[in-house]
């Protein structure tokens, strides 16, 4: 009996994922309404539940893809994977107020520059503080603070050790997770309540998954504006990480 159900989940993986996420959303909405009186957004609870399940999945399977590493939940990997995630992000652009986005365009570009350099400096400084002295390792860890894709791309380009690359990935993933969880709590304090600040936020935070999750849990109407700038972040990071930023670090470390 159990085996048959398991078989259906594996065979109908994407369909099972729809049902699974639907249940998670439903439970989250009930928790939001009953336990927090609607003060905490249902989506915020759903995302935190997702992260919790990912932690459990990671512990149980020892894999890297959270709950999606369990064969019965493999469909989650497809539903939440880069392909459908990007597809849904593009779809949100349909709701963009063109005038609004154009007005904040330059601000977004400015935010992208700061959002690349600032995390890099912090990551590089932390690497030095923890005893790394070679330019390649410092640059790779700094790049990991930009996003979890920039870290390994930069590390691979510069020939960093696999330990350092793993650290860079972990830094980027933790950054994304922290952004998902903390954005709804901090949104009010940083004035994140309009398309302008959402574009600045997207450019500064970068990491598409962090911004996608953080804004969804805060205020869905801000999603397309934040996503518009955030999606340029990884590309720009991969551009300047192994080049300009590496040269700058090498010039300083000698």
């Amino acid at each position: 009996m159990m085996h048959m159900i398991q078989h259906i989940f594996i065979e109908q993986s994407l369909v099972a994922a729809f049902a699974f996420v639907g249940v998670v959303m439903w439970v989250s909405l009930i928790i939001s309404k009953r336990l927090t009186m609607g003060r905490i957004h249902g989506s915020a609870i759903a995302i935190v539940m997702g992260l919790g399940l990912a932690y459990v999945g990671g512990l149980v399977t020892g894999g890297q893809k959270g709950i999606a590493d369990m064969p019965v939940f493999a469909g989650i990997g497809l539903l939440g994977g880069a392909m459908l995630r990007d597809f849904a992000i593009v779809a949100t652009a349909f709701e963009v107020d063109v005038v609004e986005a154009r007005k904040a365009g330059m601000l977004g570009v400015f935010a992208l520059v700061i959002g690349t350099v600032l995390p890099f400096i912090i990551g590089a400084a932390a690497a030095v503080a923890f005893g790394y002295s070679d330019a390649v390792s410092i640059t790779t860890i700094g790049a990991g603070a930009i996003t979890y894709i920039v870290g390994p791309v930069t590390g691979a380009a510069l020939g960093a050790s696999s330990t350092v690359i793993a650290l860079a990935i972990a830094t980027g993933v933790l950054k994304a997770v922290l952004i998902m969880v903390t954005t709804p709590m901090l949104a009010r304090f940083v004035g994140l309540d309009n398309p302008r600040s959402a574009m600045a936020f997207g450019g500064l935070m970068g990491t598409v998954s962090g911004v996608a999750g953080g804004l969804a849990a805060t205020d869905p109407k801000l999603v397309p504006y934040g996503a518009l700038t955030a999606t340029f972040h990884t590309g720009i990071g991969c551009l300047v990480g192994p080049s300009i930023l590496y040269l700058a670090v090498r010039a300083i470390t000698g």
């Binding site: 998670v24 759903a46 997702g50």
Partner: peptide, 10 residues
């Protein structure tokens, strides 16, 4: 989809 994405983070 974002919830599914969160469920497969490392």
């Amino acid at each position: 989809i974002v919830v599914a994405m969160a469920s497969q983070q490392n």
